[in-house]
Computed example of a mutant assay.
Amino acid sequence: MAVVNQDIFFSKLFQTGMSDPNSRIYLPKILTDTQNPSLNPYTMDRLDLGQQTIGVIPINVLLTNISIKGIPSVSVNAQEGGSFVFTGLNTAINAQFCTLSPPPPNVNPILELSADFALSFTGNQLTGTLEVTIDKAALNAQMLLSGDQLINIITTINSLQASVPDTALITPKVTFDSGGGEFWPTAFSKFIKKKTTIDAIVAKVNDELNSPGTKDNLSRELTTIFQNAIRQQLNP
């Protein structure tokens, strides 16, 4: 009989628990319970894409009042392409979004980004609202677990990196407040659908997620949720 080492044992144990809807440490439930910051939805005040080219026009693109829904519709299950690997107390997680059918209650089945936008060029500004749905994405997380016993586990996030694959279906809906005419809704929608645009938005979101304040707050939030969940799991 093959001997299973400690890292493999705990990797499988946590991956199974985080993939089981009946488990206290079910990953979508953990993410749904976050409050500071909330990941259902995750919000940002502003996201400045700087100068871009729409058609042939150089233009500054600013998104404000950003909300990202659907984050808890995520899985680390190997059958969904996810993974959960312990190496000592270091944890590497690959989570796949938009894979759960059905998703958790009151959670979008796919990712949806909504925002206000401002397009500024040559003394002019156009404003409006934007909704973008994305049907495939992933999150790679590096975390350190510590604590003197399982029920006092401390979660420290080292890095979070979201990504959107080339095969993702990106569907934008653009509404201009006024002045968009016939050209701008089509041109701005095409700009938003470009993979380079989505990658630029995701890079800005990653920068925010990995800022010291956000990482520290999220680490504390996940620590509290994990500790409560593990206590309930061990003492139902």
Rank of each mutant, 00 (worst) to 15 (best):
D7K: 01
I8F: 11
F10H: 14
S11M: 13
I25E: 06
Y26V: 07
Y26H: 09
Y26R: 09
L27H: 04
K29T: 15
P41V: 10
T43A: 08
R46N: 14
L47K: 09
D48Q: 06
Q51G: 01
P58T: 11
I59Q: 07
I59F: 01
I59P: 04
I59K: 13
V61K: 01
L63I: 10
L63T: 08
S67E: 13
I68V: 07
K69H: 10
I71K: 02
P72A: 03
S73Q: 13
S75K: 11
Q79H: 00
Q79L: 02
F84H: 05
V85N: 13
F86D: 10
N90S: 11
S101W: 05
P105V: 14
L113N: 04
L113Q: 03
A115M: 02
D116L: 01
F117V: 12
S120R: 06
N124I: 12
Q125K: 14
Q125S: 10
T127A: 13
G128C: 06
E131P: 02
V132R: 00
V132C: 11
I134N: 04
A137V: 12
A137T: 04
L139H: 06
N140I: 14
A141I: 14
A141L: 12
M143Q: 15
G147F: 07
Q149E: 15
I151K: 05
I151E: 09
I151R: 03
N152H: 12
T156W: 00
I157T: 11
N158G: 08
S159P: 00
L160G: 02
L160W: 02
S163Q: 07
L169F: 08
P172N: 05
P172I: 02
P172T: 12
V174K: 03
F176R: 13
E182G: 04
T186Q: 12
T186H: 08
F188H: 04
S189D: 11
K190Q: 10
K190E: 12
K190F: 05
T196F: 04
T197M: 07
D199Q: 09
A200P: 14
A200W: 06
A203K: 15
A203Y: 11
V205W: 05
V205M: 14
D207G: 00
N210H: 11
S211W: 01
K215Q: 06
D216P: 02
N217I: 15
L218G: 06
L218C: 04
F226S: 11
Q227L: 05
Q233V: 06
L234D: 03
